[in-house]
Amino acid sequence: MSFREAVESGKFVVTCEVAPPKGVSMEHVKDEAELLRGRVDGINVTDLQAACMRVSSLATCALLKEMGLEPILQMVCRDRNRLALQSELLSAYVLGIRNVLCLTGDHVVLGDHVEARPVFDLDSVSLLQAAQGLVEGQDLAGGELEGAPADLFLGAIVTPGADPVEPQVYKLHNKVRAGARFIQTQAVYDVETFAGFMERVSDVEVPIFPGIVLLKSAGMARYMNANVAGVNVPDGLIKEMAEAGQKDKAAKGEGKKADFKAKTSIDIAGRLIRGLKPRCQGVHIMPLGWGHHVPAVLEAAGL
């Protein structure tokens, strides 16, 4: 079943993200994707995430497609102008890629090439407009296409925990009007906050998949709270991770091998997904290097 069919069937949808490497060793990303075979409905491939230079999302998606997997191409507006973005959408299509997640993208100063020229000729909303135009057979300049990528399946993102959230809500509506058919979100750690957000956007008629970012440590949680916009890890979860970390330390002191942190992280993610399940039509997992734990997370979530 394609990702689109899964979403449109109304079933509970699971997507997971993989990240291309900096360099040409593709084994790791292929292994991570292979682990997801049969377990998820789509695999997001990030586009120079955090503004760091890497193998492209397009090339990685094409490899996944060759492996018989279902990639979701992420596209940001930081590095290409409207010609290159539209061209890449067509290129993705001819390589068999059907799902595209449109984002604005982090600014270059947050990445590893801080002296680069940021583009932002388009943004998430206008990239969706451009892609929807192509779907309908026309480019942004009004030019007619020789063959339209008619069944591109377009998505966008939202940050439910943004403060204030109203501007996000306005933009979400504009994204849906521009052509988004599915929405993935920034990391969610609190079921009630997410439920409140869902009530607020109950008039949005496309499915919203909350993001699940695996906590790796109490320190990571605190870092995200301090530095990542719209992410709020509740104190209870930070405490659980801190305690797991202490257990790992104690075991190491006794010369034993232990991984309480990973176990706790998997347990937290599983609990979150079970709590979110009645309030949405799927989840989007962002393991951030812990792709090997995703099967365990799905098991913990009862999926």
Binding site: T104, D106, P118, D123, S124, T159, K171, N174, Q186, N227
Partner: peptide, 28 residues
């Protein structure tokens, strides 16, 4: 900082810009 025309990106934190936290987010 990104010269966006269709609303803020996901970057602002406490109303400040992701590019320079001493600068207010223009879209906020």
């Amino acid at each position: 900082s990104k010269s966006l025309l269709y609303g803020s990106c996901g970057g602002p934190s406490d109303g400040m810009c992701e590019v320079d936290p001493t600068v207010e987010c223009g879209w906020m």
